[in-house]
Write a protein that binds this DNA or RNA. Structure first.
Lengths: 182, 182
DNA sequence: CTATTTTGAGACACTCATGTCTCGCTTGGG
DNA sequence: CCCAAGCGAGACATGAGTGTCTCAAAATAG
């Protein structure tokens, strides 16, 4: 039985999302490895959480690349971004609550880079006259994260179907909850 | 120096929002009381967190009453709700991340009651043809909480001005980020 | 002013998560 | 088949957080 680093990190993220202060023993059990082995690869809780943080950043950055948010129509770019980010919504929900991670410069810088890319998208949409000017890119950025995390929560809770989650987030963020005035 | 229960709970919530696993000693220091006194009124961490949970529920319920969400135009009711809930956004952000609280039946039931009231508001708006039918009340409910919590986070971070936060949430939730089609 | 109550500071033992170690077993390559 | 490497299980000490207690100081009531 070889050590699957990615699998362990996935299980750890899933558990820590549900139970923020789970012990290393619980994490090891959930990941299907012994506490000793877990400690061999992640020497200490900080190392594990930091690895989760950097992995989350990397995955999110990859999704931003895959969504090509710097290209084409901003509205469509936002929809692509949401569609791509939805599979990592669980991860994002975890990172969102682990506010101690922002004290790690490496992770804080990673978030700053991502924030800049997403904010640039919103700014581009504003400059093209598509997005409202009275909602700042920084706020839209945070709102996007919050809605994606919330949708991940809802899916995990059975309140929203998995295949609907991207549309729910996209429609609400872009068009709001009011009916179209025809 | 008398023991101000409400003040202690406020300080505890503020600290625990920033640092989820602060020690009882840190909480006591932040609240300006000794660890012994803190322990006299809240015998154990669970008791403190549970008190925070029930207080949050109570305050939120009071805000729902103050906003009179069962009366008048649903759109205006949503705006009133957001306006009223904003002062407790810090509390809500804390409760949102403390997922262990949902294991306490008392608190879980409190959330269920609040969810029902808010969902009823959204359903009423839908039945009056004001709100979109393709976004479920349950999802709108969660989205509202997420946006309020996110705005509280933004205000605390200096990304959004305090007096703008209610408008930011209300406009985004109701009308979305797209410019009006004129 | 005196008596009662309440609070703060600290000591103490206890629990639990953690870090580290050893040893036996399984797995896979030679 | 044998051997090296990796993993699991568990023991052990350590440290941080916690619950409980005592006693003196401070606040409050009478």
């Amino acid at each position: 039985m070889s050590f699957d680093r990615a699998q362990v990190l996935r299980e750890a993220a899933a558990l820590l999302t549900r139970k923020a202060n789970a012990s290393m023993d619980e994490i090891a059990k959930a990941a299907g490895v012994s506490r000793a082995t877990l400690h061999r690869y992640f020497p200490g809780r900080d190392a594990l959480v930091r690895a989760l943080g950097t992995l989350g950043i990397e995955q999110l950055a990859e999704r931003l690349d895959a969504a090509r948010i710097e290209e084409g129509d901003p509205v469509e770019a936002v929809r692509r971004l949401i569609e791509e980010a939805m599979p990592v919504s669980g991860f994002l929900a975890f990172l969102y609550g682990e506010n101690q991670l922002y004290e790690v410069t490496e992770i804080d810088e990673g978030w700053t880079r991502i924030d800049e890319r997403v904010s640039a998208l919103f700014r581009r949409g504003q400059e093209q006259g598509l997005f409202r000017y009275d909602l700042s890119p920084a706020w839209l950025c945070e709102a996007l994260y919050a809605l994606i995390a919330a949708s991940g929560w809802c899916v995990q809770d059975g309140k929203v179907a998995s295949r609907d989650s991207a549309r729910m987030v996209g429609e609400l963020l872009l068009s709001g909850m009011l009916r179209e005035r025809s």
